[in-house]
Simulated scan of single mutants.
Amino acid sequence: MNDFVHHRRTELLGTYVLNHLTGPELAAVQDHLDDCAECRRTVAELAPVVRALARVDADDVTVPAHLEELVVQRVDAQRGRRGRTPLLLAAAAAVVIAGATWWFLSPSVPLEPVALDRQAPGVTAEASLVPHTWGVEIKLDGQGFAAGQTYQVAVTRADGGEVSAGSFIGTGTNVMHCNLNSSVLRANASGFVVRDAAGTITLSSTFPQR
């Protein structure tokens, strides 16, 4: 399994141990755990964090700004005494952040993984969408997009038209996390395309019909 896929699965461990994954994302993490002893150890070590979160009363907690930075710093302070690894630090932070997000944001809009029809050579990516009342949000994670190059993203409508969802700058071999928004409602959205500066399709997806 390549580094990008491993990185993406690791990012989901916090949500996984909180039992907040479903569908394709849950299956993907479970498959990864079957093959990755390192991540299995991390999941086992996160159990005390999950138990601690279960005892928290959300009504008595105020979420501070820069939550992720604060969590990583606090866990990092224990590294010398407990031998925490960078992977466990990231996963522990993800557990707390995922738990806080679950309690305080109370997500009611489902995250819908979508398959990619086309990926240009050297590009590795995963995508999902969020059907909002104002339109479709695309969450795109990937690497291999030419560093410094601007890419345009458009959501395709069921009638064949396209509506801009924004743009991003490629990060080369570094993993990119990008949220893109369009005014096309989920019922009218049929997919999305990513084009490079020359207008060539670098990435595309067709959404399941609903």
Rank of each mutant, 00 (worst) to 15 (best):
P86C: 01
T124H: 11
A125H: 01
Q143E: 11
D31N: 15
M1R: 13
A54F: 00
P86V: 03
V5W: 14
R8G: 07
Q73W: 11
R186V: 08
V136M: 07
L13P: 04
N181C: 00
F168Y: 09
R55Q: 13
Q149P: 00
N179F: 14
R195D: 05
S204A: 15
S205Q: 01
Q30H: 01
R79Q: 10
I201D: 07
Q119E: 14
V184D: 03
W102C: 07
L33S: 02
S190G: 06
R118M: 06
A98E: 09
I138M: 06
D3M: 12
K139C: 03
E11Q: 12
D159W: 02
G161R: 00
A197F: 10
S128M: 11
E25S: 09
S205I: 10
S164W: 01
P86L: 03
A92N: 06
L185T: 09
R79D: 08
V136D: 08
R210S: 09
A125T: 04
V130R: 08
E68Q: 15
L180G: 04
F4S: 08
S204C: 12
T171K: 12
G170P: 07
R40V: 09
M1E: 11
R9Y: 03
R118D: 10
G83Q: 03
D3W: 12
R74H: 10
G135K: 00
N188H: 08
W134L: 04
V72M: 09
N174F: 10
P64C: 08
N2P: 07
P48C: 01
A93K: 13
L21D: 07
A58P: 05
D159F: 01
P131K: 00
A189P: 09
A197P: 10
L203F: 02
G80K: 10
F145R: 03
D34A: 15
P86K: 06
S182C: 06
